[in-house]
Design a protein around this nucleic acid. Structure first.
Lengths: 215, 215
DNA sequence: CATTCAATGTATGAGCCTCTCACATCACTC
DNA sequence: GAGTGATGTGAGAGGCTCATACATTGAATG
């Protein structure tokens, strides 16, 4: 049995794992995470429904691999367009805006990157975020008041991360209207909010209490 | 056919819809949204697999109903423990912390409240958030500089919303360790970050920082 | 009361999906 | 050129969503 595979020249695919990840991203862009199925990915890649399981333990493993790919692309975007922004303050603020714009471009990509279940069960996804933190930490240290504990810089990054993810979520669920239409405005607003956050953590006299800022 | 239903005294359940919502919340607390199935909910409620579809159009509709219930409970928490906090500044900051603490208590509940697909397709979920905004808007107006446009107050609330959701997501995915262990610390950090945000939007001379837009 | 009927539950099944297992095919090594 | 491990195929078990036809019942109506 096992007739020649249809839709391909050779019996073996060549690089099925990579092809599946790519196809997965495409499917998710079209129908969302919930609409995605391993079977559909196999179909579009012209392999049998069981083939993907040679490379990925289960559906979630494939999704996680796709999410990692998204993470790599985000990193590239950061390095290409934010890393060289002048001041540390503006650099950190710009990350938030850039993140929002990337969300509009990758849509479903960010859906899986932040899918609740996936991150909880696949630590490599959290690791990929940590690498991002390492990239930004120097900037955070520059911004935080000199006497502050190192933990404050990390806390600032966590806060920025939270803020950006929250904006992305609101953008993608259509809270502000069609994502394509409002992307730029939301990005600007996210940047503005990030600036406020950065300013708050930069105050010398500890956390921003009611006393922290004058005026 | 149609023998007497097993596990119940009467043929009719009484209030199947409500029971299903409750059961749904329990299941999601145990196995997450992805592990949830309408069939399992029916099983635990001792009705046939088809019965839920008399009350909910499809799986997502049941999830959305459960999410709405979560939203109601959150509202109750707010009214019971935050609404009477002294200053508007502290009130807004406290919302973030309270939200984080509620997340630890309801776990999966917040997963569905913020599930990407659901909010996009079920506007009533977004409406429920909007009601929350109405509750907080007066506080936001108090905080924002007098000359500011009304939009600034709304923008502040969006930023707070984003921030809180981001912290909740990080908490629930275990980024800081076992959620139960770190809840209080994360809540405090969220509150602090929220204070920074509020302070940033309260500065009279427009948004924080210079007019330098991000690149 | 008796009857009707709309609401609610059951039974059945089609179609899809995930994941497994035995077997086929192929690239590579010795 | 035979052996071997990696990769793909086919078949199928078991679960799920949802549609459809039928059963049961409480409540309204006469």
């Amino acid at each position: 049995m096992a007739p020649t595979p249809k839709g391909r020249a050779t019996y073996h695919h060549g690089d099925l794992a990579a092809a599946l990840v790519q196809t997965t991203l495409e499917i998710i862009d079209e129908v969302g995470v919930r609409g995605f199925s391993v079977a559909e990915a196999a179909r579009r890649t012209c392999v049998s429904p069981g083939a993907p399981y040679r490379h990925f333990a289960d559906r979630d493993a494939l999704l996680a691999a796709a999410a990692l790919e998204v993470s790599r692309r985000l990193r590239a975007i950061y390095l290409g367009s934010v890393a060289d922004v002048g001041s540390a303050q503006e650099r950190l603020a710009a990350v938030a805006g850039t993140f929002v714009r990337a969300a509009a471009r990758y849509r479903g990509g960010l859906d899986i990157l932040f899918a609740p279940g996936l991150r909880a069960t696949h630590p490599e996804l959290r690791d990929s975020s940590r690498e991002f933190v390492d990239l930004l930490l120097p900037s955070a240290f520059e911004v935080v008041a000199p006497g502050e504990a190192a933990a404050t810089a990390v806390a600032l990054l966590d806060a920025l991360h939270a803020l950006a993810r929250g904006y992305v979520a609101q953008l993608l669920e259509g809270k502000f209207g069609d994502p394509d239409d409002v992307v730029e405005e939301v990005a600007i607003r996210a940047t503005r909010a990030a600036r406020a956050l950065v300013a708050g953590y930069g105050v010398p006299s500890g956390p921003v209490g009611e006393e922290g800022r004058d005026r």
